[in-house]
């Protein structure tokens, strides 16, 4: 186990190096840089600024400088926001995380319950309705359902705020603040859950259908166990096993923010920030963020491999 983990960590470092270089090159080679976008500058001033920012140096040299600073914990200053990249992450990531963790939790909860019931009552009217509804939810574009819900629930009925995280100008603290944030979270979480729940429910349903047909389920029933116990203890545990792989993949999504949802609901998350910095070619911010996601992805897969081993002793590492 220990040798396995140390070997994996070695690989991870190599992968991250390669990934960081590749990401850096891709960004550096995207046409246009931070200076190009400023239409007020004269060509000479543009050259001067490229010199100041070091944008006129060869890509390799810029990469080495960036990597060197990154190793010293300095991820640079965002060019457009004039703030350290890490400070910006800290300001925005937790807002994204809040949305993601709540909607992920709800998605999994709904998916497990609905998936199990639908599998147990396979081909019943419940199963059919659920499957149709899930397909419908999966195929609606997020911006459409988001705007529709804003129109209905916020603009027409005025039940929920149309966007943002706080009531503008609000000085709420403590419990009132928490309530306010929850009130603003309802719409985006609703949309995110709706969009995520489809594929996951189908996944659990089909896993469950496979498991229910296994011999040990028949054995459990033959022993005279209660149906509820058979279903949720014996069947569900085994049906959930493959889903552990998914947990690892959720990790970057938890911190990565959602471009479209955040934009539609005006949520102050990292996805929006990333989007803007891409169109401005704000390299330090782009590099920092993409590498952060890459690290989470690699760590996420390692975690899910280890979890798999813990959950299922048959899996050898």
């Amino acid at each position: 186990m220990r040798t396995y983990i140390s070997k994996r960590i070695m690989y991870m470092i190599i992968i991250l190096f390669a990934a960081s270089f590749l990401i850096f090159c891709l960004y550096a080679l995207t046409p246009g840089d931070f200076i190009t976008g400023n239409i007020k500058l004269t060509p000479e001033r543009k050259e001067e600024l490229r010199e100041i920012y070091g944008l006129n140096k060869p890509v390799i040299e810029r990469y080495v400088t960036w990597m060197n600073n990154a190793f010293h914990g300095d991820f640079g200053y965002s060019l457009s926001q004039q703030k350290p990249v890490l400070t910006l992450f800290n300001q925005y990531i937790w807002n994204s995380f809040l949305l993601a963790i709540v909607s992920t939790f709800l998605t999994w909860l709904v998916a497990v319950v609905v998936g199990v019931v639908a599998a147990y009552k396979q081909y019943s009217w419940f199963d059919t309705i659920v499957m149709v509804a899930l397909f419908a939810a999966m195929s609606i574009p997020s911006f459409f359902i988001g705007l529709l819900l804003i129109k209905l629930l916020a603009v027409d009925l005025k039940w929920l705020p149309p966007g943002g995280m706080l009531t503008t100008g609000s000085n709420a603290t403590g419990l009132a603040y928490v309530k306010e944030v929850i009130h603003h979270m309802i719409l985006p979480v609703m949309v995110m859950t709706l969009l995520g729940v489809g594929s996951l429910t189908r996944y659990f349903r089909s896993n469950m259908i496979d498991v229910i047909k296994q011999d040990y389920i028949r054995t459990a029933r033959a022993k005279g166990l209660k149906e509820r116990k058979v279903l949720f203890t014996h069947a569900l545990r085994n049906a959930l096993l493959p889903a552990i792989t998914l947990v690892g993949f959720e990790l970057p999504a938890l911190f990565g923010g959602s471009l479209i949802i955040e934009k539609i609901f005006n949520w102050p998350g990292i996805g929006q920030l990333y989007m803007q910095s891409f169109s401005l070619r704000d390299y330090p911010l782009l590099m920092g963020f993409t590498l952060f996601i890459a690290i989470l992805t690699v760590v996420g897969t390692l975690v899910s491999d280890i979890l798999y081993h813990v959950a299922d002793p048959r899996v050898r590492l």
């Binding site: 992968i15 991250l16 934009k263 169109s279």
Partner: peptide
């Protein structure tokens, strides 16, 4: 490697889709 690549290309793809979407 493969996974980071997927993430990256997904990000880039999402970016361009998004630009198109809010144009």
């Amino acid at each position: 490697m493969n996974k980071s690549m997927t993430t990256l290309s997904a990000v880039i793809l999402a970016t361009s889709l998004f630009l198109a979407a809010c144009g």
